[in-house]
C-alpha cells in the first residue's frame, strides 16, 4: 500500500492517528514490521481537519509565519482527498489547493489563486524542491510505498526519556534521500525523530515530532520541527484545532469550496 509514512507524521494533509493505547513491543518484530505497524496506525481516521501555523526561520533567525487550514478524507482503501486553505500572509490569503489521490493513478491537483479568481488544474514536478519555502519537499509530501525501502533495526535508544526503536530506511532506488534514520517510540509507535541523508550520504536535515496530544483517542504530535543542517534553516509546524472523524462531506473537496472557502 502506498503511503507517505514520514509525511503522515510530519504534515497537515495526513491523518495523524496513532491509537492511544500503548502497544507492546512484539517480540521478534523486524524493522519492516515496526515501520509497517507505524504506517498502518497512521491511517486510522476516516477524515481530519486542523489549523496549522508554519514558521519559517532563516539562518539569521528571521521568522516568517504562514497559517493554513487542512481537511482530509479517505475514500475507501486506495483513495483520499485533501484540501488546504491558506489564511496568511496576506499575499496568499484565499489560496486553496485540492488534491485527489488515487493510488492507481497520478494525483489530480487543483489550485485556486484569488489573484486570478480561477481554479486551475495543475501538474507539478520537481519533487525534490521545497514546498512553499519550507524545509519539506514535495517528495516528503507525496505518496511513497513502504516497500520501496529496506529497513534495518539498528538499536534501541532513549530519546527525551522515551525508549525508541532506531531504524535505518534505505531506498531501493536512490532519488532524493540516500537514507533515513527514524526513531520510533516503543510505547505507541509514533516517530519522535528522523534524520535525513542526501543522495551523497551527507546529513541533510532532522525532523522532531513533539508535543503529542491525545485527540479523540488518537495520539498526535502537534509540534514538528524540521531543521536543515546544510542551509541552517528551520521550519516549525504547530497543529491546532485538530478534529478527527467529524464526518466531512464529500462536497468540501470540490471547486465549489475552493473558491468559497471554509
Amino acid at each position: 500500500m502506498k503511503c507517505s509514512f514520514i509525511w503522515k507524521v510530519i504534515v497537515i494533509t495526513a491523518v495523524c492517528c496513532i491509537l492511544t493505547l500503548p502497544f507492546p513491543a512484539f517480540a521478534g518484530m523486524s524493522a519492516y514490521d515496526i515501520v509497517k505497524k507505524c504506517e498502518d496506525l497512521l491511517d486510522q481516521a476516516k477524515d481530519s481537519k486542523m489549523d496549522m501555523t508554519m514558521t519559517l526561520e532563516s539562518k539569521k533567525g528571521e521568522k516568517r509565519e504562514r497559517t493554513l487550514s487542512a481537511f482530509t478524507k479517505r475514500e475507501g482503501e486506495n483513495k483520499s482527498k485533501s484540501i488546504i486553505f491558506f489564511n496568511s500572509p496576506a499575499d496568499v490569503k484565499g489560496t486553496s489547493f485540492l488534491v485527489w489521490t488515487d493510488e492507481n493513478k497520478q494525483d489530480k491537483q487543483w489550485l485556486y489563486l484569488p489573484a486570478l479568481q480561477r481554479v486551475r488544474q495543475i501538474s507539478s514536478s520537481g519533487k525534490g524542491e521545497s514546498f512553499m519555502g519550507t524545509e519539506l519537499t514535495f517528495f516528503d509530501m507525496g505518496s511513497q510505498d513502504v516497500n520501496d525501502y529496506t529497513y534495518t533495526l539498528l538499536k534501541e535508544e532513549n530519546v527525551n526519556n522515551e525508549m525508541c526503536y532506531v531504524i535505518k530506511a534505505v531506498p531501493k532506488k536512490v532519488e532524493f534521500y540516500n537514507a533515513i534514520t527514524i526513531w520510533i517510540r516503543k510505547t505507541n509507535y509514533i516517530p519522535i525523530k528522523a534524520d535525513f541523508y542526501d543522495t551523497k550520504g551527507q546529513y541533510l536535515k532532522q525532523g522532531l515530532f513533539m508535543n503529542v496530544k491525545n485527540i479523540k483517542g488518537i495520539n498526535t504530535p502537534t509540534h514538528i520541527e524540521i531543521y536543515n543542517e546544510q542551509n541552517g534553516r528551520r521550519t516549525i509546524i504547530d497543529l491546532n484545532n485538530i478534529l478527527y472523524d467529524s464526518g466531512l462531506k464529500d462536497n468540501i473537496f470540490t471547486e465549489r469550496f475552493m473558491t468559497r472557502g471554509m
Binding site: 486551475r120 495543475i122 501538474s123 507539478s124 520537481g126 521545497s130 514535495f138
Partner: peptide, 8 residues
Amino acid sequence: LDYIHGDS
C-alpha cells in the same frame, strides 16, 4: 501551457 518545478 504551464510548467511548475518546485518554486519555479
